[in-house]
């Protein structure tokens, strides 16, 4: 048994998902290799080498991998797959993009978005937007798996794996990177944050999301939103928490002016502690909240900021 873990990073820094992937991988085998593919990402490989439980880091540092294009990354991982029984990546937009290509090229099924490892061939994954939980067993010779990182604890630091540079260059002439518009924020990313404060339709407009910022600053929190708030145009889609947005599981989730539609709950119900602030005491969000506060958010938020 040997696992290849695909590292999540932005060419500069390793993302915390990778630590969680390593933890998931360690449940599959003792031999865990991390692949860092990108451009100018040697520092990322050094970071990855420090994760406890990692035996080797492969570094594919080449401009063709800079933007994680699915065609190039998919071919690289497919070639490397020969030496491994399991290939795992995070179920992020990067992992979701190239991993099915790897599975198809290896002629095996992909197991998507697992939340638990039962054994080396049996995995647990949510279906129907988390309204049902399936346990599936794969008899494929190689298992290609994407992992819901938020469902796993992070592996500790403290390793000292070797870094091996690869000179494999896989490049498709059919697809090219044009541009990226990345949301700039000083705050932690939603999927990595320990604390999240999210606003819903009750925020009334995008301007009012500023009311969440002071609280987020004090708690070191990321700011999220419900689909209703995104659809209403208050905030951009990358802030969306829910079935069709990001799936999060922070220590503390504060839902402000969010009614608690199934679509939203699917994205945050695994949070450790949920706080709901809503003026409608019948709102379904209170059925899942550990602490509910019935009140007008425009009164409550300034008070909360002052109290922290």
């Amino acid at each position: 048994m040997a696992v290849l873990v695909f590292a999540e990073h932005d060419n500069k820094q390793l993302k915390s998902e990778t630590h969680k992937l390593v933890n998931a991988a360690s449940k599959l085998a003792d031999d865990v290799t991390i692949l860092v593919a990108g451009e100018g990402c040697a520092a990322v490989a050094d970071e990855a080498a420090k994760i406890s439980g990692v035996s080797k880091v492969l570094l594919a540092d080449n401009p063709v991998y800079a933007n994680q294009l699915a065609e190039n990354i998919g071919d690289l991982v497919t070639e490397l797959a020969e030496n491994y029984t399991h290939i795992i990546a995070a179920a992020t937009t990067t992992g979701k993009n190239f991993m099915p290509r790897v599975a198809a090229l290896l002629d095996v099924a992909q197991i998507s978005d697992i939340i638990a490892v039962e054994s080396e061939d049996t995995f647990v994954r949510p279906i129907y937007a988390g309204n049902a939980i399936a346990t599936v067993q794969s008899s494929d010779t190689k298992k290609v798996i994407t992992v819901r990182a938020s469902a796993f604890d992070a592996a500790e630091e403290g390793g000292s794996a070797s870094v091996e540079a690869l000179d494999t260059v896989k490049v498709s002439d059919k697809s090219a990177f044009v541009s990226a518009e990345l949301t700039k924020s000083e705050r932690p990313e939603l999927t990595a944050a320990e604390v999240i404060i999210s606003g819903g339709r009750g925020m009334q407009n995008g301007e009012n999301f500023k009311l969440l910022e002071g609280i987020a600053d004090k708690l070191g929190a990321a700011i999220g939103a419900s689909r209703a708030a995104v659809d209403a145009g208050f905030v951009p889609n990358d802030m969306q928490v829910g079935q069709t947005g990001k799936i999060v599981a922070p220590q503390l989730y504060i839902a402000v002016g969010i009614s608690g539609a199934i679509q939203h709950l699917a994205g945050m119900k695994d949070s450790k502690i949920i706080v709901a602030i809503n003026k409608d005491e019948e709102a379904p969000i209170f059925q899942v909240a550990d602490y509910g506060l019935v009140g007008d958010l425009f009164d409550v938020l300034p008070e909360l900021e002052a109290a922290l």
Binding site: A109, T122, I133, T135, Q137, Q287, L293, G295, A307
Partner: peptide
């Protein structure tokens, strides 16, 4: 298919907690 579904279960239900009276109690 080489993937067999062994079982399908309903997700664990989250139980509702308590209502707090004000911000001070919440904090």
């Amino acid at each position: 298919s080489n993937v067999k579904t062994l079982k399908v279960e309903a997700p664990a239900q989250r139980k509702g907690g308590i209502k707090v009276a004000d911000v001070a109690e919440l904090v």
